[in-house]
Simulated assay, not measured.
Amino acid sequence: MKKLCLLVLIFCSAYACQTDDTVADDVIQNPGEGGTEQPSGAVAGFYVLNEGNMSMNKASLDYMDYESGTYKRNIFSQANPNLVGGLGDVGNDLGIYGSKLYVVVNASNKIEVLNAETGVRIKQIDLANGRYVTFYKGKVYVSSYLGSIGDPKAPQGIVAEIDTTSLNITRRVEVGRQPEELVAYNDKIYVANSGGYSPPDYESTISVIDIPSFSESKRIEVAVNLHRLKIDSEGDLYVTSRGDYYEIPSKLFVIDTKTETIKKSFDIGVTDFTIHNDVAYMYSTEFSYISGDYDISYRMLDTQTETFLETTFISDAHKALIEMPYGIAVHPETGDVLITDAKDYVTPGTLYCFSPEGALKWSVETGDIPAHIAFKYK
């Protein structure tokens, strides 16, 4: 879920047509039919998590199989036909660690742990209002808002630690209100606090968690309404501030983990990004309540020099294809850029694959609101 304040309005309108219907049965597409060869290296394929609108029970999981060249929709329901209700309500994040796929389903208050090869459920872990997941030294870490969705009186958020063998939550630590993305590095966890349930009283800090003691050691003051948080090869954190959608603009900050202070900031909005080979691939769908519209842009930033490149990862001729960019990933071997398009948020989306030069290679239809991608290795 992105730009929470705006999406609450979308979700409320969608609630009027609430349904318990799951997504359509299996749909198999072949994006290589036009002669496009799929990669044949160590990456076997990737999963796409479709969020689905809140209260509509339409989160779903797709899989792109490079070996067969096929893209399969709704694989969770196919792999688990006896589980009533499908994947659940609002898929918020996913990641593969070892042989397991972890899927955070926000409004269903759970984490689905699946066999990464088959998609079959291994265990469901209950966690209220979970958000994002990361991994470190044999453990899984998940940020959680706690409380009811949209409740301005919700308690402080937490980060939960899950043991990968027992698949039980072993430890919890309190952080700021409505924590978002998190990174584990050098025996610490950094988590971006948003405070998104109580505008204009946003949070403005990154919580720093000492993993051995599992306690919050400090908070780094950054800016209001933090969201995305990634780390580069030199140990610098890149964190986005969504501003207040009115007068405080969105910004991007670079945090030095050695000093745990801000080393640089950029006066740009970044909705989502990924870092690959020391380049940050970014897009922005910045919304303003003043203009009532979105400003969509694409950028690339060299994380070693901390300067923007003159080129982008989508050619100008293809930018018009994407109505509402909603997720991004870069193939770790080929450098192909994957962009998801949520379109109108209530109909199936599209996944586009672009070459490193920005040319469109192929596209497929996804579930509703495709957002998160996890690569699976052979």
Rank of each mutant, 00 (worst) to 15 (best):
I169Y: 01
R171W: 03
R171Q: 14
V173T: 11
V173H: 10
V173W: 07
E174N: 13
E174W: 04
R177S: 10
P179T: 02
E180F: 14
E180I: 14
A184S: 07
Y185H: 09
Y185N: 00
N186T: 02
K188C: 01
Y190P: 08
V191Y: 07
S194E: 01
G195R: 03
G196V: 13
G196L: 05
S198F: 04
S198W: 01
P199K: 00
D201V: 08
D201K: 10
D201E: 13
Y202E: 00
E203N: 10
E203L: 09
S204V: 06
S204E: 10
S207Q: 01
S207F: 02
D210M: 07
D210G: 01
D210N: 15
S213G: 15
S217I: 10
S217Y: 03
S217A: 13
S217M: 10
S217Q: 11
S217K: 13
S217P: 00
K218A: 11
V222H: 01
V222S: 03
V222Y: 00
V222A: 06
A223T: 06
A223D: 15
A223L: 08
H227R: 15
R228C: 14
R228K: 15
R228D: 09
L229C: 11
K230I: 05
D232C: 09
D232P: 05
D232Q: 04
E234Y: 11
E234S: 15
G235A: 05
G235C: 01
L237A: 04
Y238S: 14
Y238I: 12
V239L: 08
R242Y: 10
R242W: 11
G243P: 08
G243D: 03
D244T: 04
D244M: 05
Y246C: 09
I248D: 13
I248F: 00
S250Y: 01
K251E: 10
K251T: 14
L252I: 04
L252W: 02
V254N: 05
D256M: 11
D256C: 12
K263H: 02
K264N: 10
F266D: 09
I268T: 14
G269P: 14
V270E: 03
T271I: 07
F273K: 04
T274A: 02
I275S: 01
N277R: 14
N277F: 05
V279W: 03
A280L: 01
M282W: 03
S284M: 05
S284F: 08
S284L: 05
T285Q: 08
E286F: 02
E286N: 14
E286I: 15
E286Q: 12
E286H: 02
F287R: 01
F287Q: 06
S288M: 11
S288A: 02
S288Q: 05
G292Y: 03
G292A: 00
G292L: 09
